[in-house]
Each structure stands twice: as C-alpha cells, then as structure tokens.
Design a protein around this nucleic acid. Structure first.
Lengths: 200, 200, 200, 200
DNA sequence: CATGAATGAGTCTTCATTCAT
DNA sequence: TATGAATGAAGACTCATTCAT
C-alpha cells in the first residue's frame, strides 16, 4: 500500500494553492485545477476527495500554527515580563509564523470565502479585541468606555491587517522579517500613545 | 406610466443592493433578485442589460463621490492650510461621503468579487500611499526610505480599513459621524507621531 | 404570474412517471427524462426544483390516499360491524384506492429506492401486522405465540403483495375491481381458516 | 502460492456478497469492495473481469440449485405420490435450498437491480404459475377460468414471497427450518382450501 | 500477480442570458 | 413592457474500467 505518486500530489497542491490565491476558493474550479495541473478532473479525486479537502490540506498546519501563536501571545504573565521583552517575543513569534506560512495564511484570510472557515479572520480579530479589553480592564483604564469599543476594535483590525499587508506584499523572507519587527515595535508604541491620549 | 416604470427600476436596484450586500455579487443570482423584487427574471433584462450593469448602476455615483473626495483631499495646498483646518476639512468631507454612500461604498469594497472593479479598494490605497509619499518627499522627510515604503503603505491601509470598519458597523449616522471625527483626529495625530519617531 | 405551460409540465410528469416505473427512481436520470420529454435538461428545473420533487409531486396524493385508507380500515369498531360488512367495505375502499392511484402506488412501492420513502411499503406491512396482532390479542387468540409472529407477518405481507400484484398486472379498471373483490373475500376467508387451524 | 490466491478470491467474494446484500448491486461500488477487501481496485480485475461477473460468480450455484429444486418439484408424478408425501418432500427440498443458499437467494431476489438477472424472481413466479395451471388443468379443475388467472398468479407469488420472507428474517437455520415446514404445510392446505372454494 | 495512475462518461444541479409572444 | 419558456456552459462529484509498470 504505497502512497500515491508524491510528485503529482505536490503538483496538485501547488496548482490549487496558486489558483486559490489568485481567484479565491470558490472561483477556482476543480476543472481549472485539473487542467492547469495537466491531469484529468476525475484523477484529481484519486488524490483528494473534494475541493475543500485540498483547501484543508493546504491550510491545516497554518491553522494550528496561528492558534499556537495566539495562545502564546495571550498567555503571557504581564507581571513577569516587561514591555520590551514582550515586544521582542511577539516579533520573533510572528516572524516565524508569517515567513513559514506566508501563502497558507493568505489562503485562510483572503481566499476562504465558501469554506467553512470563511470568517476565521474576523474571529481572530474579535479574540484579539477581547484580549485587549481584558488587559485594559485589569489596568483600570477601561471603565465607561466599554460600551463603545470601536477604537479597541480598530486597534485589533489594524494589527491583523497590518501584519497581513506585510505578508501580501510577498517579498523576501528578510524583507518580511524586517518589516514585522518595525511594525510590531511601532504598533506597540502607537498603542501606548493611543492609551495615553484617548483612554486615560 | 413613467412613474410606474421608475418604481420598478428603483425596486430592482434596492433589492439587488440588499442581496449584493448580504451575499456578495457572485452569490446573489439574478433569479433571487427577480424573485425578491416580485418581477420576472426576463423583465430584469428590460431594465438592466446584465447583472454587472445593475452593480455598475448601484455604485456609479459612489465611485464619482469617492474620486471627488480623494481629489479634494489630495489637491489642498499645504502652504495655505494648517493641520487643524485640514483635519476638520477631512473629517467633514469623509463624514459626508461615508454617511451618504454607506452601503454603496461597502458594495465597492466588500461585495465586488467577480466584478471588474474587484480591486478598486487596493487601487485607492495605492493612490493614497502615492500621495503620502509625495507629500513627505516635498517636506524632505522621505529620502532613502523610498525603496522600502511598507510603512507608508500600512498607513494608507490603516486609513482606509479604519474608515471602512466604521461604516461596516452600520449604526446610526450620528454614531458614524462621531467615530469618523475621533478617528480622523486620532489618525492624523498618530500619523505625526509616527513621522516624528520613525522617519525623521 | 401565470403558471408554467401546463402542457409541458404534464409532459414531464408523464415522462418521468413512465421512466420511474420502468427503471426506478435512481436509474431514471434527469438527462433521460429531459431527452424523452424533448426538452433541455436545464429547462426541467424551471418546472421542478429537483428529481425528488418530481417524484414527490407524482406520489403525494397517493400517499395521502393510502394513509386515509389505512386509517379507515384500522379504525372500524369490531362490535358494530360484522365480517361481511367489513369485507364489503374493505373491498370498496381498496378498489377505489388501487384503481385511482394504480401507477402512483407502484411508484411508491416498487420504484422508490433512493427516495426518502424507500421503506414505506415495509412500514405499511409492519403497521398492518401490528394491527392484526392487536385484534387477535383482543380476541384472546394470540397468547404465547407472540414471540414468534412470523405467520402474522406473512399474512400482512400476503395482503400487501397480493393487492400490489393485482395492480402490477395493470389491466383494465374493471379487471382490477373484480380481482380485488375476489381477493379480499378470499383473503379474509383464508385468514379465518388460518386462525382456526393454527392459532386456536 | 495457489492457496494465497484462492484466499484473496474468497475474500473478494465474501466482501462483495456482504456489500451487495447491504446496499444492492448498483450502490455497492467496486471501490468499496476493494477497500473493504483490503486490496487494490485494479487487482479486483485480475480476479473478476467486471462487477457483474462477481455477482454472477456469487449467484451461479444458487441459480442451479433453484432450477434443480423447481424441476424436482415440477416433475413429480401426481399419480405416484400422495399429498402428504409431496408436502414432506417439498418441505425438505426447500429447507435444504433456503438454508444452504440463504444469502445467495436474497442476492438474486432482492439485490439484483442493475443486473441482467433483475427479473429472475418474476420469471420463477411465472413458471410456478404455469405449473399450477397445468396441474389444475390435468385435474379438470381449471376450465374457463384460464384467461383470468390472477388467483393462480397470486398463489405463486404467495409461495415465493412467503418463503423469501422467512429467509429475509435471517434467524438461525433451525428457525428457518421450522418455519418453512409450517409454512409449506399451511400453504398447501390453504391452497386446497382455495381450490375447494373458488375453483371447483 | 499487484498496484497506482488515469480517464470518459455519467450523476444532479445552478446560472446568466436569450427568445418568442 | 412583461413574461414564461428555453438553453448551453459550467459547477462538484462518482464510477466502472483500463493501462503501464
């Protein structure tokens, strides 16, 4: 019971990845994938049982990696770590995530319409927002502003979209690394600036 | 007679707008539009020659309005206007745009996949970025950084996505107005802060 | 809002009925129905939203009629009606059912594999069996035999299959009527004979 | 080597039998058979040239056995055997057939849709009916009733369906034996009863 | 013998659009 | 104008079967 010809499987995955990235999950049809991969439509189904299973296969490890990163960033103990350390840690862990899973993350965030994960990005933004609110509440900064948390929402959106924009530009790994470092630093400093000015 | 016809046309447009907003351009089918509008599918084609032409009709004036706003914001003479005035002007003009064309703008930015305008948002972001770079160059701030303009790109994205998030929340006009004012103020101040710290 | 061309709808229904009867629900494909009806496959869907909906349309009234007949036969009060009257009543009501819904009943019993009603015949047989057992229990005939009720099951099967065989032969209405009368009479008398010999 | 090969063949046959019985000939796919048998789909074709050939192989001996039983039951000389002996003989020979080929017979009668033998049950019923008519004609019982032989048809159906119901219940061999004995006895007696009442 | 690879014809269904009346 | 009727191309997916190694 040997596995199916690895070369073709990789070819399919690569082709599907490109098409999903280019046109999105829905618009990229199985016929197109087959044609571009140079095999018959039915042969596709010898390698993957459905279109979504190709997508799942392409994104599975990126999902887990994202979850791990989110957990690691949310679980830090603010008493045992200072801002500088936290900034450095965040940079490092995000660099790793976004260089390793560049395209896969874009598949998840930008090309997933029609998938059962199509609102994952929004869910992540919501979780980040929740986390921010919790932290600010702990620090006694967020009192009456709770009801109208648009700014905190915006800050969460900014973070996610900022990181994604870096990934979308799709340049070299080192380019990504540099910009993530700068971005995280800027972001955290801007974050403090914002708290100073608008919440306190 | 003419009034009646106009009514039907408006009915189609209203129905299509709702469906496009709810499901996106592609997923909203002509059958659904016809059914929901209470007319026959074929009669749709007496009013609009294609699905895309409905979309075009719905978004045309919003496009022009966006273009006008962009031009008005880009064309100010920095020698004749101070930051405060510019902030106030921007707020005003964006408020007008985003309250008047709330749904149409969302049609353009969030529901246009499948349309020939599906990358208009990205184009706008690029133009804003270009503008920022020009201004900073004029002020002799941006010299060697030109090649690596991600931060300026990010600032443009932040602006657009921030404003869109406000519109997406879809609350009352006054809520939108308040948040746009706050947002623009915060945004311009953060912008200056950023320039201080990272570019000078 | 006029209805769709009745002629074509009837043509589709007739064609589908014939094909379902000839090949069964599953094996009769929408392509075949369309081809045989002389219309395009997609036009089929202007008249019926799915293959099953054609089937449902064809069988709906027969279902209700069967249920009504079963209820009327099960609900008689044995104290107020003698065997002869009951025989006559049963004959009459079954004649009506089986002449009026000849083909539709065969659709339900013989051609429904793949449908959500594919075990309706078995369900009916079970209900008849239950009814027989209840009646025999009331009459203190069925005591220790309960555990192994195969014969009662067989009697229920015989009834249903006997009636269906009459219908399957698909001759004239009068032929069906005559045979149902004879059959019911024979069946009820055989039934008593069986009770005499094997249960008492 | 040969033993091993034979094992695989038997494995395929056993697996296919189970799947045909469970889902019917059509719905049981070659893929499923291969998967469940633990071999490759293509290797299936080294043992059997087609899906139908598996079915044929599985049912071949049951076919012959059925034919033999039919012949033995049809060929008795009514002058040399009395009813009791005939009853006993029939019971015995049917018991043997239906216990030995329980599943194979169900394959033929209940799971053959899509096969070229899908109407074998009906053919058998017809032959039994013919036989009955011949016998009754010999005994000068059936004169003018010939044209309208539904009752005799029904009697043939009853016999076949009754026996099949016993087999379908799929309990122990002894359960089957007991019920076949009872059934045949009951059947022949009911048969005579029917002739008394309706034909003479 | 065994298998992974491959496929063409088929399944039901959807949809934007056209046409005749 | 209004509409019912019609369709071709496309969608995902299945399946029995063949073939080269």
């Amino acid at each position: 019971m040997q596995v199916l010809k690895e070369e073709i499987k990789l070819n399919i995955l690569q082709t599907a990845k490109e098409l999903f990235l280019e046109k999105g999950f829905k618009a990229a049809s199985m016929s197109m994938i087959a044609r571009k991969a140079g095999i018959s439509k039915s042969n596709l189904y010898n390698y993957f049982s459905s279109k979504e299973s190709i997508y799942d296969y392409l994104t599975k490890s990126a999902y887990t990696a994202i979850e791990d990163v989110l957990n690691s960033l949310f679980d830090h103990d603010p008493d045992n770590i200072n801002l500088e350390e936290y900034t450095a840690l965040s940079s490092k862990v995000l660099c790793m995530l976004l260089t390793k899973y560049r395209n896969e993350i874009l598949l998840i965030t930008d090309c997933s319409s029609g998938t059962r994960h199509e609102s994952y990005k929004e869910a992540v933004i919501d979780r980040i927002q929740e986390h921010f609110m919790m932290e600010l509440t702990k620090l006694n900064i967020l009192n009456d502003h709770k009801k109208d948390c648009f700014f905190i929402h915006y800050i969460a959106v900014s973070l996610v979209e900022g990181l994604l924009e870096i990934v979308r530009h799709n340049k070299s790994d080192s380019w990504i690394k540099n910009n993530i470092q700068l971005f995280v630093e800027y972001y955290i400093s801007g974050h403090s600036h914002f708290i100073e000015r608008y919440l306190k």
